[in-house]
Design a protein around this nucleic acid. Sequence first.
DNA 1: ACCATGACCTGCCCGC
DNA 2: TGCGGGCAGGTCATGG
Length: 286
Amino acid sequence: MPELPEVETVRRGLEAAVAGRTVSGVEVLHPRPVRRHLAGPDDFAAALSGRTFAVPARRGKYLWLPLTDGDAVLAHLGMSGQFRVEDADHPDAPNTRVRFRFRDGGPELRFVDQRMFGGLSLSPGGAELPDEVAHIGRDPFDPAFDQRAVARAVRRRRTGLKRALLDQTLVSGIGNIYADEALWRARLHYARATDTLPQSAAERVLVEARAVMADALLQGGTSFDALYVNVNGESGYFDRTLDVYGRADEPCPRCGRPIRREAFMNRSSYRCPFCQRTPRAGHVRW
DNA sequence: ACCATGACCTGCCCGC
DNA sequence: TGCGGGCAGGTCATGG
């Protein structure tokens, strides 16, 4: 379950379920999710036996399970990845790809992924911050997140505002849903040119992105269906609280005019045509 | 260097 | 009922 609040919900579930537990065996049921482990599925499985998980960590949408010896299992959920914690006699969910068993004989950890854009790999020395994560920016929940500096970096770009919000190297954790929600809260159009955007507006949309993701986290994240669930298989409830995403033709909660769905960047964008008017020429970048 | 686009996958839903 | 197209919240490699 893709964006920051959903990934953080999973991280918390993993903290409760696997921290301090020692792996007894790993079973790779489909090679694709471990494709980034270049030594191959068998090596991945063998390398993890006997190792102990520490407290799971996250930056943006990347998640990693540090091992007590300083390495880490890096995970990305992609579009449809899930972690599930289930007793061994509990049947596998469809699309179960990797299974971790533990020495204590307690519940298994299963990686489930329908579309397999996500994956797992072993990151040597990655307990603190895996190399594979170093290229992305800090997310808005990071204590070292520098809102003013990120806003300046956004304004140095020559692109549309939503493209910048989705660029994980500038600020991580924001995806299609929360970008639209943040833009609506900040009353900005997705194609607003970043290079003519005032600093105050750039900071405002970052503040709103953080705020909407914090609200979502309180409700266990957003999910529209069974594809996005926490480690117990339960869905979050934030979809009921979304203001614009997925609400084409419904009234804007602020002004009552119908929300519009538009294609942008080969995906859907939702906006209020009144609260988030198309910028005048010279202030738009499609 | 930046920026935009397509590729990578499976499965569901809709209209014909 | 069956089939094709469109759609889905992710990133990454590759062009310009």
